[in-house]
Design a binder for these strands. Structure first.
Length: 968
DNA sequence: CAGTGAGCGAGCTTCCGCTTGACTT
C-alpha cells in the first residue's frame, strides 16, 4: 500500500488531522521552523568559521546569501523526518498558509531532499471537509512567498545584530535592538515622557441630587454657569496644568464651588430639554491572540504568558482551536455550533437573525487560521468541563466559550436619555445669584442580547449588566425638580495611563508590529533586557530604556518609526507578489543604492563617530530642568549628579516619580554611610561605607576624604569599631628603611603587600601589615618576585616545529590558549589538550592567532600610568576585520571591572571551608547563590541590596574565597 | 560612584518567527 507523509507545523494539529485522513497517511509535525540563521558562534559550521559575514549568517557580498543551519535542538527531529520521508511514496507539505508556513515547507523540502513527489497543501480550518478539500487541490511551493520570508528574516537579523552592538558600545553591554522590541520600548518611553512632563491641575464641579415631585431622585452634574461652560479635565493643557488657550470655559475654585453649592441647595430646577434615543450594541468579534491576551489580563488578571500557557494546554487537549491567530474568521462548523447552543441555552430570541461574519482584518494579518474558539462541531459547555480542566484552563475556556457564543447572539437594545436642567443659585446675601445649567444622563437596557453571555472587561456578565444601566426617571421638558443635595467635588487632571502588557500588545497590533506567536515573548524580551519592569499591571520603562530609545530616535530615527514595519510589510507583499526582488530590497536597506534606501551599514559607521555616549546616558527630566541635577545611567545603574555630588537613584523609582523635591532629598541623603565617630587626634569624622570595591572607611568629611582604607576580609562593616577603623586608616605603614629606600606596608587591590622603591612583594595575611618587621621584609625582598611555586603559568604542552618557534599551550584567565610568543589563540569548545596535535595547534594559531593587544593606543589614564613600559607594536593590527573590531574589544576590556585570578578555578567544595574570610553579608550572599543555587535577583532584595551591587559584592567575595583557597 | 603593584591571551552579548519538549525540585 502506498504511503503519504503529511507534514504540518504543530504536533497537536498532526494528531487531529491524522484522524481525518485515515489509512495510507502518516502525519508528522515539523515543530515550527527547522532551520534558521546561526544564532551565535557555536552554531556556525566549521567551514564558515572565521568568515567575516558568518556572524550575521548572511553573505552580504554574495547577494545576501543566507547560511541556514538546523538548530541543535531540532537535529534529532529532522533526522526522524528524514527517515519518514525515505519510507514514504509521496510527501505533502501542509504547513500554514502564510509567509512563515511557506518558508517552513521550503526548508523541509531543502533539508529532507525527498526522492519522491512533493506537494504543497493548505487549509485554514481543521475540519474534515476543509482537510479533504485541501488534499484534493494541492499546489506547488510559492517561491516568491519564500523569498519574502527570507527578506523579512534577513532584515530582522541585520537590524538586530548590527544595531545591538551600537548599544553595547554606547549604552551598556548585552542590550538589544530590534524591529519590534525597539518600537515597543519606544512606546513605553514616550508614554512615560508624557507622564514626566505632565502638570496636574485641580478643578471643581458640583454633583447634584435632583428630586422629582413624586420623590424619585437622580444624579445630575453642573455643566455651566451664567451661560459659560464649566472647565473639565480635558480643557487643561497637560504640559502646563493651565487652561488651553482656546478653551472658553470657567474654572471653579474650591471656595466658589462651596459657595455655589450652598446657594443651590434646596433651589428649584427646571428641565430645559429631555432627549431619548434608542441604541443598539453589537457583540465583539471572536478572539484572536491579541484580544485573548487583553481579556485574559482584564478579566482574569493573567499575564500574557500565563494566558498563552493555558491556551496551549487547551489546544493540545483538543478543547480549542489554534491559539496563535490573527483572523476573526469562524468556520461554518463553528457558526453552526454557536447558534445551536444560543438557541438551546438562551432561547431563539437571543439568536442573531443572520449568522454574523467577522472579516475585518488586523493590520498585516496573515489569516492562516481560524479565530480562537471551542473546538469541534458542537461546543462543550464550560460547566461540563469543570471536572476535567485545571483552574487557569477552565477559566480561559469559559471566556473563549462565552465570547464565541456571544458573537452569534442578537444585538443588545436599549435607550439613552439625556436631560438638561436650569436654575438659579442664591448669592451669599440670599439674593438671586448666577444662573446654572446641569445635565443628567441615563441608560436603560430593554433587551440584553449578547450582553447576557459576555460583557467585555468584566468577569461576571449578569452583574456587569446592572452596571451598564443608569436609570433615570422619565423627566419631561418644563418639569420642575428640587436640588435636594449639592456636593462640591474636587478633581485633578490625570496623566495618560501607563501601558499594561495587554494594552501594549493592543498598540503593537495596531501598529502592525509583532505577530501572534511573538507578542508574549516580546514582552518577555523587553523585561529581560531591563527596558521595563512590571509594577502591578503597569509596564514601567527603565532609565536604560530612556537612554536606548533616545539613541535610536536621534541617530536611527527611521528604524524606530512607528510605520517602519508597515512599510516593510508593503515591500514584502511586493516581493511575495513577484513585483519586487529580495536582493535589491536588502541592498537598499543595508548598503544603500545610489544614496537611496535605509543604508544601515554606512549609517552605523557614520553614527558610531557621532554618538556621544555621555550625552546619550544623560536623560532629560523636565521637572529637574534648571536645577543643575542630571540623571545618568552608568555602569552601576542610574544615578543623579550635580557638580561633584552623586547619588544613586533608588531601585524601583519610576521615572515619572522623580521630581525636584525628591531629587534634592535623595541627593542630601547620607547614602547608607555609618558614622563611627571622630578621630580625636585630627578631629575629623570617621565613616564606614560600602563602596564599589567593597567596604571601606574614610577619614574626613571632605570629598574626596583625607584618607580611605579598605576593610580586611575578616572585618565586618556592620560591627566595625572606631578603634579598628583608625587602625586601618593608619595604613600604609612605614616599616623602616632598607638599602636607602623606605619600605612601606600597604593594602592594595590584590591584597596586602610591601613596597620598596619600584619593587614589591605580596604578604600572606592582612594582619602582617601591622606586624611585619623590617628584617622579615628584607628577607622577602631577597626572594624572587612571585614566591616559591608561583611561577606564572607553566606550559601545559609544548609543540615543536622545524623552522618555526615552538607553540606552547598555557592555562590562562579565559581558559587554555596557544601561543608562540608572537600570537595567541584561545581554545574553543571541543578543542582540548587531549585532541591537540602539533599540526592542529599550528593550524589553529595560523587561523585565529591574534597579536596581543598593545597598550599604546589606549586612551587616557591607563596609558599614562603604564607609560612606555610596554613595547609598542611595530605595525597596526593587520586584517581589516581586526581593525574594525578592536575599538569594541578595547572598550570592553577596559571596562571589565574585575580581574579573575590566574589560577584554575576551585570547585565550590574547595572554596566553602574558607567562607570565614567573608563578611556576614557576603557569606549570606554567597551561600544563597552558590550553596542553595538561588538567583541573585531574588537574594539581593532579601539582603536589602541593589542587584547590581550584590553582583559586584559576589565577585569581590569570590575573589577573596579563591585567594583564601590558594592560601594567600 | 575611593584608591591601590604584578602576572596575562578573549569571546560573547544581540534579532523575529515558527513550534514543543527536556531537564530538575
Amino acid at each position: 500500500m502506498s504511503k503519504t507523509l503529511v507534514i504540518v507545523e504543530s504536533p497537536a494539529k498532526a494528531r487531529t488531522i491524522e484522524k481525518y485522513l485515515g489509512k495510507g497517511y502518516m502525519v508528522e509535525s515539523s515543530i515550527g521552523h527547522i532551520r534558521d540563521l546561526p544564532k551565535s558562534a557555536a552554531d556556525i559550521p566549521e567551514k564558515y568559521k572565521g568568515l567575516a559575514w558568518a556572524r550575521l549568517g548572511l553573505d552580504i557580498e554574495n547577494d545576501f546569501q543566507p547560511l541556514y543551519v538546523v538548530s541543535p535542538e531540532k537535529r534529532q527531529h529532522v533526522a526522524k523526518l528524514r527517515k519518514m520521508a525515505a519510507e514514504a511514496d509521496e510527501i505533502i507539505l501542509a504547513t500554514d498558509d502564510d509567509r512563515e508556513g511557506e518558508s517552513i515547507a521550503w526548508h523541509l523540502f531543502q533539508e529532507l531532499k525527498p526522492k519522491v513527489p512533493v506537494k504543497r497543501m493548505v487549509f485554514h480550518e481543521i475540519t474534515k471537509e476543509a482537510i479533504q478539500a485541501a488534499i484534493a487541490s494541492p499546489r506547488q511551493i510559492d517561491t516568491n512567498l519564500v523569498e519574502a520570508q527570507e527578506a523579512r528574516r534577513a532584515l530582522d537579523r541585520l537590524y538586530g545584530y548590527e544595531v545591538s552592538p551600537v548599544l553595547w558600545k554606547k549604552v551598556a553591554p548585552k542590550l538589544s535592538a530590534g524591529r519590534v522590541q525597539s518600537v515597543a520600548t519606544r512606546m513605553l518611553v514616550e508614554r512615560e515622557r508624557e507622564r514626566m512632563r505632565f502638570v496636574s491641575a485641580p478643578w471643581w464641579d458640583l454633583l447634584v441630587t435632583g428630586r422629582t415631585a413624586d420623590a424619585t431622585t437622580f444624579p445630575a452634574r453642573l455643566t455651566d454657569i451664567a451661560g459659560q461652560k464649566l472647565a473639565l479635565g480635558k480643557d487643561f493643557d497637560p504640559l502646563t496644568g493651565k487652561l488651553k488657550p482656546d478653551a472658553k470655559v470657567r474654572i471653579l475654585s474650591e471656595a466658589e464651588a462651596r459657595a455655589l453649592a450652598d446657594g443651590l441647595t434646596g433651589e428649584s430646577l427646571t428641565v430645559t430639554s429631555a432627549e431619548e434615543k434608542p441604541f443598539t450594541q453589537k457583540p465583539y468579534p471572536p478572539f484572536i491572540t491579541s484580544t485573548l491576551q487583553q481579556e485574559g489580563s482584564r478579566k482574569l488578571g493573567f499575564a500574557a504568558t500565563r494566558t498563552m500557557r493555558a491556551a496551549q494546554r487547551l489546544y493540545e487537549g483538543g478543547y480549542i482551536t489554534y491559539m496563535r491567530t490573527d483572523s476573526t474568521n469562524l468556520s461554518v462548523e463553528a457558526v453552526t455550533a454557536a447558534r445551536t447552543q444560543v438557541s438551546g441555552m438562551y432561547g431563539p430570541s437571543y439568536l442573531s437573525p443572520q449568522p454574523r461574519v467577522y472579516s475585518k482584518k488586523a493590520k498585516n494579518a496573515q489569516e492562516a487560521h481560524e479565530a480562537i474558539r471551542p473546538a469541534g462541531s458542537s461546543f462543550r459547555t464550560p460547566d461540563s468541563l469543570k471536572a476535567e480542566l485545571g483552574g487557569d484552563e477552565w477559566r480561559l475556556y469559559d471566556l473563549i466559550w462565552k465570547r464565541t457564543v456571544a458573537c452569534q447572539m442578537a444585538d443588545a437594545r436599549g435607550r439613552s436619555l439625556r436631560v438638561r436642567l436650569g436654575g438659579k443659585a442664591l448669592d451669599s446675601s440670599g439674593g438671586a445669584g448666577e444662573e446654572v445649567g446641569l445635565s443628567a444622563s441615563g441608560r436603560t437596557i430593554d433587551f440584553p442580547g449578547f450582553l447576557r453571555a459576555y460583557v467585555e472587561g468584566s468577569d461576571d456578565p449578569s452583574a456587569a449588566l446592572g452596571d451598564r444601566e443608569t436609570p433615570l426617571p422619565p423627566l419631561k421638558q418644563g418639569e420642575r425638580v428640587t436640588a435636594e443635595t449639592v456636593k462640591p467635588e474636587g478633581h485633578e487632571t490625570q496623566p495618560p495611563a501607563r501601558y499594561t502588557e495587554a494594552s501594549l500588545v493592543q498598540s503593537m497590533e495596531g501598529a502592525g508590529i509583532g505577530r501572534p506567536s511573538t507578542y508574549a515573548s516580546i514582552l518577555g524580551t523587553i523585561q529581560d533586557r531591563g527596558y521595563a519592569t512590571k509594577k502591578g499591571q503597569a509596564l514601567v520603562p527603565s532609565w536604560t530604556a530612556f537612554a536606548t530609545s533616545a539613541l535610536l530616535e536621534h541617530h536611527f530615527g527611521n528604524l524606530v518609526d512607528y510605520d517602519f514595519t508597515a512599510k516593510m510589510e508593503e515591500d514584502l507583499d511586493d516581493i511575495a507578489g513577484g513585483r519586487a526582488k529580495r536582493v535589491p530590497y536588502l541592498q537598499r536597506f543595508y548598503l544603500g543604492v545610489n544614496g537611496e534606501g535605509m543604508a544601515l551599514r554606512p549609517l552605523i559607521d557614520r553614527q558610531m563617530g557621532e554618538i556621544d555616549a555621555r550625552s546619550i546616558a544623560t536623560i532629560g527630566v523636565p521637572k529637574l530642568e534648571g536645577s543643575g541635577i542630571e540623571v545618568r545611567v552608568g555602569r552601576y545603574g542610574p544615578y543623579m549628579q550635580r557638580g561633584e555630588d552623586k547619588a544613586n537613584l533608588p531601585e524601583g523609582l519610576a521615572p515619572d516619580e522623580l521630581n525636584l523635591e525628591l531629587a534634592e532629598e535623595i541627593m542630601s541623603r547620607p547614602s547608607g554611610d555609618r558614622p563611627l565617630g571622630v578621630d580625636e587626634a585630627s578631629g575629623h569624622p570617621v565613616v564606614a561605607r560600602a563602596g564599589r570595591y567593597g567596604p571601606y572607611v574614610t577619614l574626613g568629611a571632605e570629598n574626596p576624604p583625607i584618607r580611605t582604607a579598605s576593610l580586611f576580609p575578616t572585618d565586618d562593616l556592620d560591627t566595625l569599631s572606631l578603634e579598628r577603623a583608625l587602625k586601618l586608616l593608619s595604613l600604609p605603614r612605614l616599616v623602616g628603611t632598607s638599602e636607602g629606600e623606605e619600605v612601606w606596608a600597604l593594602n592594595g587591590k590584590y591584597g596586602p603587600y610591601l613596597k620598596r622603591a619600584n619593587d614589591s612583594r605580596s604578604l600572606t595575611t592582612h594582619e602582617e601589615l601591622f606586624t611585619v618587621t623590617l628584617a622579615e621584609a628584607e628577607a622577602l625582598f631577597l626572594q624572587p618576585r612571585f614566591g616559591k611555586g608561583r611561577t606564572p603559568t607553566p606550559p601545559l604542552s609544548t609543540y615543536k616545529y622545524e623552522g618555526r618557534a615552538d607553540i606552547i599551550l598555557k592555562s590562562g584567565r579565559f581558559g587554555p590558549y596557544l601561543t608562540d610568543g608572537e600570537r595567541n589563540a584561545t581554545l574553543r569548545k571541543g578543542e582540548s589538550e587531549d585532541n591537540l596535535t602539533a599540526e592542529r595547534a599550528l593550524k589553529i594559531l595560523e587561523e585565529r592567532g591574534k597579536e596581543p593587544k598593545a597598550k599604546v593606543g589606549k586612551p587616557k589614564k591607563a596609558a599614562a600610568k603604564t607609560g612606555a613600559a610596554k613595547k609598542a607594536p611595530a605595525k597596526k593590527a593587520p586584517a581589516r576585520k581586526a581593525a574594525a573590531k578592536s575599538p569594541a574589544i578595547k572598550t570592553a576590556a577596559k571596562k571589565a571591572p574585575v580581574k579573575a585570578p590566574a589560577k584554575p578555578a576551585f570547585t565550590w567544595a574547595q572554596l566553602k571551608p574558607h567562607l570565614g574570610v567573608l563578611s556576614a553579608q557576603e557569606q549570606q550572599l554567597v551561600t544563597a547563590t552558590r550553596d542553595q543555587g538561588r538567583k541573585m535577583d531574588d537574594v539581593a532584595p532579601e539582603l536589602g541590596l541593589d542587584v547590581k551591587k550584590a553582583k559586584g559584592m559576589a565577585l569581590q567575595a569570590s575573589k577573596k574565597l579563591n585567594q583564601a583557597a590558594r592560601g594567600e
